[in-house]
């Protein structure tokens, strides 16, 4: 599976007249099982880009190609996890995880083992019958991740998934995500505005400039995982990326 973002630009009409350019001429390619971080300041168009890749929004010019085919509508091959989790509060954890399979018409007997498998992967065995409001923010985020995984997408698009969590939970979930990524070999595009998070997670960091967002540089990180935040190499890469952002 390859994903290509090809000369993609996006403008919004503001107040009926004025055009606001949110993304300008974005080009990059994502390979199979690659972990990409989109890094940029607030308002630079990260969410917009992710929504366009997911097929929820349309570019003004350019296109998103998945294995050569244009993406112009949502597609179960492209899973997405929203900034606000967006779990269904009237469904239990199990029912949330099962949702995608239900939509595809999978029988109850076929759904149950899949749900159990992903519940375990999320480290939430025993919470299957809980409702989202009974869970902590970190637990809900994990449910959102495995709900997206349950329909077996090839690509996982994540919009600042850990943004609302405390530092400790965040670090733990980053490790868990790397774990899931190693196990499932998904392609991940992960939006963040934290340099530290991007350097910890990514194979490559796509650094976006402030509005209108265009690609400032794509930084490749070779270091093995799990990465050590306190190491000299880590600090070096982080300094390099920080300098890029502060240019």
């Amino acid at each position: 599976m390859t994903l290509r973002i090809d000369h993609l630009s996006k403008q919004f009409v503001k107040g009926g007249r004025e055009l606001v350019t949110s993304l300008s001429d974005i080009n990059f390619e994502v390979g199979d099982s690659e972990f990409i971080c989109l890094l940029g300041p607030s308002g630079c168009g990260k969410t917009t880009l992710l929504r366009i890749i997911a097929g929820l929004d349309h570019p003004t010019s350019g296109c998103v190609l998945m294995d050569g085919m244009t993406v112009d509508r949502p597609n179960p091959k492209l899973g997405m996890i929203f900034q606000d989790y967006s779990l269904y509060p009237w469904r239990t954890v199990n029912e949330n995880i099962a949702f995608g399979l239900e939509l595809q018409g999978v029988k109850k007997t076929g759904i149950q083992p899949v749900v159990e498998k992903y519940l375990a992967l999320a480290g939430l065995s025993g919470f299957g019958n809980s409702y989202p409001y009974e869970l902590s923010g970190g637990m809900r985020q994990r449910v959102a991740v495995v709900r997206a995984l349950a329909v077996e997408p090839s690509v996982l698009l994540m919009d600042e998934p850990f943004g609302a969590l405390d530092a400790q939970t965040r670090n733990k979930l980053q490790l868990d995500l790397i774990d899931i990524w190693v196990k499932t070999r998904k392609t991940i595009i992960f939006v963040t505005h934290s340099v530290d998070e991007a350097v910890f997670l990514a194979d490559r960091i796509v650094v976006l400039s402030p509005r209108p967002g265009h690609i400032r540089e794509i930084v490749t990180i070779e270091e093995d995982r799990p990465r050590d935040r306190t190491s000299v190499d880590f600090a070096k890469v982080r300094r390099f990326v920080l300098d890029l952002i502060n240019q």
Partner: peptide, 29 residues
């Protein structure tokens, strides 16, 4: 009904009829 509830369903492959019966109606219930 939250926009992301609908979009999450679209991403997971919901058709318009399924969005109505499984997201809009329970969400508005």
């Amino acid at each position: 009904v939250k926009k992301t509830w609908i979009e999450a369903a679209q991403i997971l492959g919901a058709k318009e009829r399924q969005i109505l019966s499984r997201v809009i109606l329970p969400g508005a219930a």
